[in-house]
Design a protein around this nucleic acid. Structure first.
Lengths: 168, 168
DNA sequence: ATCGAATATGTTATATTATCACAACTTTGT
DNA sequence: ACAAAGTTGTGATAATATAACATATTCGAT
């Protein structure tokens, strides 16, 4: 059992998640039009499923949730949609979890700090310019040419550590 | 085919890799003694195999290389050894590659910047204190409690980008 | 409107990565 | 010598991801 359903409940209470979803989908549609790429029904559906929460979600979980809506869905169906969404910067792949999360900064610079809570599995995305600047200069010093700069931090988020305090 | 064998050749030319290996193994043995944990023959052998190069190596590659030396070797044999070596901070797991690399800073603080070359697959480890400091304060600002702070950067290393220049 | 190219999807099979469960063996402390 | 803890052997299987090829759809040029 995961503690996440209850933990994410208060998170949802704190913000209007329907706005998160509609903002993300609007941005996605606009970006795809501008770029001349197809946000097909499958891709849109997968994006919606990912945005159902702020928790990282696994490919086969998405497949299970997609099947009722699309009976022919197979692993490739999901992985292709995920590949597209990642290419377009609409979602992040969390390497350390083999999981996926909607991106809050689609269309902007796409190098963020991901704070991944072990307790509620929610992921907070921060642009963290100070960190990214320090990182860039460290990389330059090494003579390295970076193609991607994702940072994944695992730990306990503010909400969950407060809860633990209260209970402890 | 991988371009790595030739690329890593000049890397090896640049340093005495037998020293890398013996230093790593010495440190490992000492740390395990101090900590009262067992660096068994299997674990030591896997550590040696990982240290054969500065390239990230996959679990099943290790298994293939281990089998000639240990015919009973199975996936669990390798994964158990890897789990142990990671727990003891003797190797890093590179999440974005599902691969493993020897740690240069075993026994010291264990949060580093990993620069992973797409060309030669070598991994450079840097302690990058400026980045880590900026990261810590960003994490603090978020009210997050970090348990791990690994940063994996993919790109082209200094050596390989010079080679490309020369050839291009 | 229709043709061809490019793109997207359907479908089956399989590759890759990782863990579980339980028995047997080894090491350590008493 | 014995028990407890730790390690390894072994077989099965779970979880994650891709390959290959056929079919269908979309889009632009004629």
């Amino acid at each position: 059992m995961r503690s996440s359903s209850s933990s994410s409940a208060h998170a949802s209470a704190k913000h209007d998640h329907t706005k998160c979803i509609s903002a993300a989908l609007d941005t996605a549609e606009q970006l795809c039009v501008v770029r001349g790429v197809q946000l097909t029904p499958i891709r849109l559906q997968v994006l919606k499923l990912i945005w159902e929460s702020h928790q990282a979600v696994k490919a086969y979980e998405l497949l299970d949730r997609l099947k009722p809506l699309k009976q022919e869905a197979k692993p490739a169906t999901v992985y292709r949609a995920l590949d597209f969404l990642i290419e377009q910067g609409l979602i992040h792949r969390i390497e350390s979890l083999n999981a996926f999360i909607g991106c809050h900064y689609s269309g902007q610079q796409h190098e963020q700090l991901l704070l991944i809570c072990k307790e509620c599995h929610e992921v907070e995305e921060r642009s963290a310019p100070a960190v990214m600047d320090a990182l860039s200069s460290e990389i330059d010093q090494a003579g390295f040419i970076a193609h991607s700069k994702a940072i994944e931090i695992h730990g306990i988020c503010a909400k969950c550590s407060k809860e633990t305090d209260a209970q402890g």
